[in-house]
């Protein structure tokens, strides 16, 4: 954009701020703007200003020119780990919306299998856990150098919680540590199902739902159970719960638990390295 038009625009902004009652519009610079004023003369100062404002604004926008190239930002350190697959990003969004109980396992699985976070998840994951030292450290471990690099550029992604003594940092998260899931409260009567054979676990849960032994009052403990059950049991459990008689009073709970089992199985499967 030429300086002449820019200067003219600034003069018009000044006049518009003051009002044409107090100051006359500036004379347009020679060229198209002056030709317009001559070809279509306006009777009042306010009309003259509006005409010139309209024309100059269009000239400035249509004459958009790029600025000089600038230096790009230095890239983060290389991270050789394979990236999480595209569909895993959608799964993570579904987890935080529908089944947040699975999120810890999702992040830890990314670290455990030796993947790194997809770039589109780095900012939201760090921002989401910026008030939780442990989870923020896990997210950083999953994000790798890109996570620290993003915090450099966007300090709001840094952890704001005060680090307690003994809290892990990102570099502490080894594959072995990531294999240990945080404990969830599960009633003793159901603990045996955690390690039961898949068929037995599936049968017990399905029959409990079918005969209304499990009701919505047990939802929290059943969710915790499915979130920590052996991954090998998930397909059988999901299949058995899917078959619960639709006329059962607990069919709503059965649908929800089946969805959880399917999602957890899907999540773990898609994160595994081929």
């Amino acid at each position: 954009m030429s300086n002449v038009v820019d200067d003219y625009w600034k003069q018009m902004v000044t006049v518009a701020l003051l009002g044409t009652d107090r100051r006359e519009p500036p004379t347009p610079p020679s060229g198209g703007l002056a030709d317009l004023a001559a070809d279509d003369p306006q009777p009042s100062p306010s009309q003259r200003l509006l005409q010139q404002v309209a024309a100059t604004a269009v000239v400035r926008r249509a004459g958009l020119l790029p600025g000089a190239p600038i230096a790009t930002v230095a890239p983060p350190a290389a991270d050789p780990r394979p990236i999480t697959p595209p569909l895993a990003s959608a799964t993570w969004r579904r987890i935080i919306t529908d089944w947040p109980v699975l999120e810890d396992e999702w992040v830890l699985t990314v670290v455990r299998v030796g993947r790194r976070l997809a770039p589109e998840l780095v900012s939201p994951l760090l921002a989401r856990h910026r008030t939780d030292v442990t989870r923020h450290a896990r997210a950083l471990a999953a994000a790798g150098p890109l996570g620290s690099w993003m915090i450099d550029w966007s300090p709001r992604l840094a952890c704001t919680a005060k680090k307690a003594a003994g809290s892990p940092s990102a570099v502490d998260y080894t594959v072995e540590m990531a294999a240990e899931l945080p404990a969830l409260p599960i009633v003793p009567e159901l603990e045996a199902l955690l390690l039961a054979k898949p068929a037995d676990a599936a049968r017990t849960l399905a029959s409990g739902l079918a005969n209304a032994q499990f009701t919505t009052a047990h939802r929290a403990v059943l969710v915790n159970l499915l979130a920590r059950m052996s991954p090998a049991s998930l397909p059988a459990v999901a299949k058995a719960i899917d078959r619960v008689d639709p006329s059962s009073p607990s069919i709503g709970l059965a649908f929800a638990l089946a969805d959880l089992a399917h999602l957890r199985h899907h999540m773990l499967t898609e994160l595994e390295l081929a």
Binding site: A74, P119, V122, S123, M150, W153, S154
Partner: peptide
């Protein structure tokens, strides 16, 4: 901008 920056890693 955050997601865009992370996706680019500073590269075009």
């Amino acid at each position: 901008i955050g997601a865009l920056l992370a996706c680019s890693g500073g590269q075009p």
